[in-house]
């Protein structure tokens, strides 16, 4: 029996499908164009739509730069918490513990931190100590250099760091991260599939769950991320928002491929 089969027998935990929504000034932006919506940008209505379609979790990313926008984001989190009955993660603009506290108080289940964790790794320890590891998702943007090494980037992929992907993910885990969300900058938006080799390297090095992000173009890409990449969850944005892949159809497909899904 293959290693994959043995591990599946021990573990019927479903692989998670996670739509990611960008939020600006309290509204979901970027390519959400469903019909029959009173307000296509309403996070609550979209969250409920995805939840009904079978999404296992939701991620809301605040892309607002202004102080006023941040306040609106917290109000949005409160509305989502009151109305959506599946877990959701929020990210974007989290720099210190007080940002985390505000978002968790508003009802978010988890927070995702990225550049702030690279700049101040102790933030991970602080979040874990104050609120538990389960709320702390460490997001990593990385790019494969010509020598084959994966290097972590800051500020949405604009500034390279000295950090290597696996090394940083392991450090984040040791500091108290509950999950790693890995986005390959080389794959994001290209729709040629997830970076399965790098995902598998992460899965082998970590004992916490790994979320694959960036690169999904077809349903097979999700299957590959779970099988070849050994990911625990897969996140995508535009393929869901544009209706290119419907979550219920994706799950039906994954079931036929013997991937455990809800």
């Amino acid at each position: 029996m293959s290693e994959a089969n043995i591990s599946q027998q021990k573990n019927m935990l479903a692989k998670r499908i996670i739509p990611c929504l960008d939020v600006k000034d309290g509204k979901v932006v970027k390519g959400v164009n469903f019909v029959n919506f009173r307000d296509a940008g309403d996070p609550v209505e979209l969250g409920a739509f995805y939840s009904k379609a079978g999404a296992d979790e939701l991620v809301f990313l605040d892309i607002t730069a202004s102080h006023e926008g941040r306040k609106t984001f917290v109000e949005m989190v409160e509305k989502v918490a009151a109305n959506v009955n599946i877990p959701f993660t929020v990210g974007g603009g989290i720099n210190e513990l007080s940002d985390v506290e505000r978002l968790l108080k508003a009802g978010a289940d988890k927070v995702s931190i990225n550049s702030a964790a690279l700049r101040n790794p102790d933030l991970i320890n602080q979040i874990a100590a104050n609120f538990g590891s389960q709320v702390c998702v460490v997001a990593i943007d990385a790019k494969q250099e010509e020598n084959g090494e994966w290097v972590c980037y800051l500020n949405g992929g604009r500034i390279p760091t000295e950090r290597k992907l696996v090394e940083w993910a392991v450090e984040a885990q040791e500091r108290g991260a509950g999950e790693i969300l890995f986005t390959s900058m080389s794959h994001d938006g290209v729709k040629t599939g997830y970076p399965n080799e790098a995902l598998a390297a992460l899965a082998d090095a970590l004992r916490i769950p790994v979320i694959a992000s960036g690169g999904a173009g077809t349903m097979e890409h999700f299957k590959d991320a779970f099988e070849k990449g050994k990911a625990d969850a897969a996140l995508a944005a535009s393929v869901f928002h544009f209706g290119e892949i419907k979550i219920d159809e994706l799950k039906a497909y994954l079931k036929t491929q013997n991937i455990p899904v809800r």
């Binding site: 591990s7 998670r16 389960q134 004992r207 916490i208």
Partner: peptide, 15 residues
Amino acid sequence: SWVKGIKIPHMGWNQ
């Protein structure tokens, strides 16, 4: 107890 292929925390949807 942690064994390979079994992530901790047990996080997500199970039956």
